[in-house]
């Protein structure tokens, strides 16, 4: 059962701020002292193992994320509206956050580049360059290009970065 919020919190009052020290009931409830020699299962390893059991679903998840990205790209290319570009940004943002976990870190880098471009240029992002990013993400997943061991994938990432630098004023080399 979760704790109720503490009612009486010790405070120290200063000229421009108050320090509050709520009692740490959470630690008292869930922290346990254990014998260092006792063999306990490593919770991090257990969690990593649990995640590997999901891996057979990852390709399908990645596909569904890319479908969302392509749908958003299609809508934004027709309307050029702020709302649709925000939707496109969210779809790319989802991929940059998840692609590495789902086994496609390089596609995540491409999505990160697309996010950077939309952050800087918004609706003024050139459609051709948006298309290249979206198609690169799709191609990487289709061709099973996962990480930096794949020279063609790395070359594609570099080329897209170069195109972004040519297009976005003041973009640094590592963006």
């Amino acid at each position: 059962m979760a704790d109720q919020p503490p009612l009486d919190v010790p405070t120290e009052t200063y000229a421009d701020h108050i320090i509050l020290r709520p009692p740490n009931r959470l630690k008292a409830r869930v922290a346990q002292r254990v014998d260092p020699d006792e063999r306990l299962a490593d919770p991090v390893r257990r969690a990593e193992h649990a995640l590997t059991l999901l891996e057979n679903e990852f390709d399908q998840w990645m596909d569904s994320e890319i479908n969302a990205l392509e749908d958003a790209r299609r809508r934004a290319s027709i309307t050029h509206s702020t709302g649709d570009f925000e939707e496109l940004y969210r779809a790319a943002h989802d991929i940059r956050g998840q692609a590495a976990t789902l086994g496609f870190p390089l596609a995540g880098e491409v999505a990160d580049g697309l996010c950077t471009m939309i952050e800087r240029l918004a609706e003024a992002s050139p459609q051709s360059l948006v298309d290249r990013h979206v198609e690169a993400v799709r191609a990487m997943v289709r061709e099973d290009v996962r990480d930096r061991d794949h020279p063609l994938g790395v070359a594609l990432v570099r080329r897209l970065a170069e195109l972004r630098r040519q297009t976005i004023p003041g973009l640094s080399n590592d963006a």
Binding site: P43, V44, R46, A47, E48, H49, A50, L51, L53, L54, Q98, T101
Partner: peptide
């Protein structure tokens, strides 16, 4: 993913 990790913990 987050739920799976938390359950793993």
């Amino acid at each position: 993913i987050v739920r799976t990790l938390l359950h793993g913990f």
